[in-house]
Simulated assay, not measured.
Amino acid sequence: MNRRLSMALAAYGAWSQAILLFLFDPMKRWVTGSLVTGASIGDVRVLGLSLDGFAVRGLDHAEGWLPQLVFIVSSGFLTYGVFRGAPRLKPQLRTVLALATAVLLAAGVATLVRPALEPGAGPAVPTYDEWLGRAQLGAEPAAAAQFALCTVWLPVVLWFLVWRWRHWPPVRAFFGLPEGAGASDELPVPLLAAARERRDLVYAALVPLVLLAVAGGPFLRHTNVRPSSVPTSITFDPDRLAPYSPPALVDEWSGLLYPALRLRPLDTERAAGWIATLAVCVVLLVATAVALHSVARHATVMRGRLFMQGWYATLLAAVAAAVMDGWLLQWFAPRRAEPVSPLWVAVGDAVRFGTAWGWATGLACLGAVLLVKRRGAPAAPGADVAEEQLNDA
């Protein structure tokens, strides 16, 4: 896709999100004031997704508007990159999935920024444990993700309309489309042509996730734990239920892990809870492998785009696992009492995890491609002559 059209679609999406985020709450207050006394407008939802849970509530403190601004800016840049890398003018499912993952990544960045800006955080940046607890146990752990999924269709609709009317001269002139745009089915040459090379990339890119799953995390979201004197409603910290002392490195970094990404049981949970967690972990790894195989099949460049595609694959697989998490743990390992749906708690955990660790998968993709290309690179011109002289000797 050309630069002008990509920039127009990304700007339209970011501008629409900004309008909704900054004007939705004042509009609700204005409408509520014109209603009958005592009437009010509750949470507005579209297809079950909250439209105003992430809206700006006030401009008097940074915590009320800075995460939303970070989301808008991040979403604009990431969606521009997705549209710029689209191989065809015609909308495709994998490009739409990449676009949805890009806005979810922006939502994850905003989620991880918010705890450091809360009014109770004090003048200094909160410690790692304080920041982590706020990011995990927020009142609306998936509000940003819900808003992202609500608004991802806005640039897609404009993209479809541009493609549908691509032959109309004003549309071609405004968006800089060449004559006959969208008619050719010619695709760029893939970066990895052999099936063995694509398989090697998938194996290498899965290594960071497997290591994280082996390390596990010290957090629980379910109540299928061994009896203890501590109330069972408090299950997110196993130290409150039984002694648990992970290695220092795991204790420092595993808090950002998705709670269901764990290949080993904790001392405090029963077998049923761990088996359900293990099943979700397997779904996450398999979904990541499928997404990475698709990335390996369609990758055409080796620079930042491949890195971001690996990041997107991790985040998309984490959200897919969260859907399974919300359904499976409800039956085999119920969650503790939450003010929101268990599904959206899982989605919030998954988006936070994919945002925090997807870069490792992207770096593994780049490293795998570099090794594959170096292994398959032709020898230097003088290498054959030197080898022949050596053989003669």
Results as ranks from 00 to 15, higher is better:
Arg4Asp: 02
Ala8Gln: 05
Tyr12Ala: 09
Ala14Ser: 15
Leu21Pro: 10
Leu23Met: 10
Pro26Ile: 04
Pro26Met: 07
Thr32Tyr: 04
Ser34Lys: 08
Leu35Arg: 07
Thr37His: 08
Ala39Leu: 12
Ala39Phe: 15
Gly42Gln: 14
Leu47Tyr: 12
Leu51Ile: 12
Gly53Phe: 11
Gly58Tyr: 06
Leu69Thr: 14
Val73Ser: 07
Ser74Arg: 05
Ser74Cys: 12
Phe77Glu: 08
Gly81Met: 15
Gly85Ala: 14
Ala86Met: 14
Arg88Pro: 01
Thr95Lys: 02
Thr95Ala: 10
Leu99Thr: 08
Ala102Asn: 06
Val103Cys: 05
Val103Asn: 10
Leu105Ser: 02
Ala106Thr: 03
Val109Ala: 14
Val113Gly: 11
Val113Trp: 12
Glu118Asn: 06
Ala124Gln: 10
Arg134Asp: 09
Ala135Lys: 04
Gln136Asn: 09
Ala142Trp: 11
Ala143Pro: 07
Ala143Phe: 08
Val152Tyr: 03
Trp153Glu: 03
Trp153His: 10
Leu154Ala: 14
Leu161Trp: 08
Val162Asp: 04
Val162Met: 13
Trp163Pro: 00
Trp165Val: 00
Arg166Phe: 01
Arg166Met: 03
His167Phe: 06
Trp168Gly: 00
Pro170Gln: 08
Val171Gln: 01
Arg172Phe: 06
Phe175Met: 05
Phe175Val: 06
Leu187Asn: 06
Pro188Met: 11
Pro190Ala: 11
Ala193Phe: 01
Ala194Glu: 15
Arg198Thr: 07
Asp200Met: 06
Leu201Asn: 08
Val202Cys: 08
Val202Ile: 12
Tyr203Arg: 14
Ala204Ile: 12
Pro208His: 03
Pro208Lys: 05
Pro208Leu: 06
Leu209Pro: 01
Leu209Gly: 11
Leu211Tyr: 02
Gly217Phe: 03
Arg221His: 10
His222Met: 02
Arg226Glu: 11
Ser228Cys: 09
Thr232Gly: 01
Ser233Lys: 13
Leu241Gly: 11
Pro243Asp: 06
Ser245Pro: 00
Pro246His: 10
Pro247Tyr: 11
Pro247Trp: 13
Asp251Asn: 13
Glu252Ser: 11
Gly255Asn: 03
Gly255Pro: 04
Ala260Ile: 00
Ala272Phe: 00
Ala276Tyr: 11
Ala276Met: 12
Val280Ser: 09
Val282Trp: 00
Leu284Asn: 14
Leu285Lys: 04
Leu285Gly: 01
Val286Ser: 09
Leu292Pro: 05
His293Ser: 09
His293Phe: 14
Ser294His: 08
His298Cys: 05
His298Pro: 00
Met302Pro: 02
Trp311His: 13
Ala313Thr: 05
Met324Ala: 15
Asp325Val: 04
Trp331Arg: 15
Glu338Thr: 06
Glu338Leu: 15
Val340Asn: 14
Leu343Gly: 02
Trp344Arg: 14
Trp344Val: 10
Val345Thr: 14
Thr355Glu: 06
Ala356Asn: 07
Gly358Met: 03
Gly358Lys: 01
Trp359Ala: 02
Ala368Met: 09
Lys373Cys: 02
Arg374Phe: 02
Gly376Lys: 14
Ala379Phe: 09
Pro381Gln: 07
Ala383Ile: 02
Ala383Val: 07
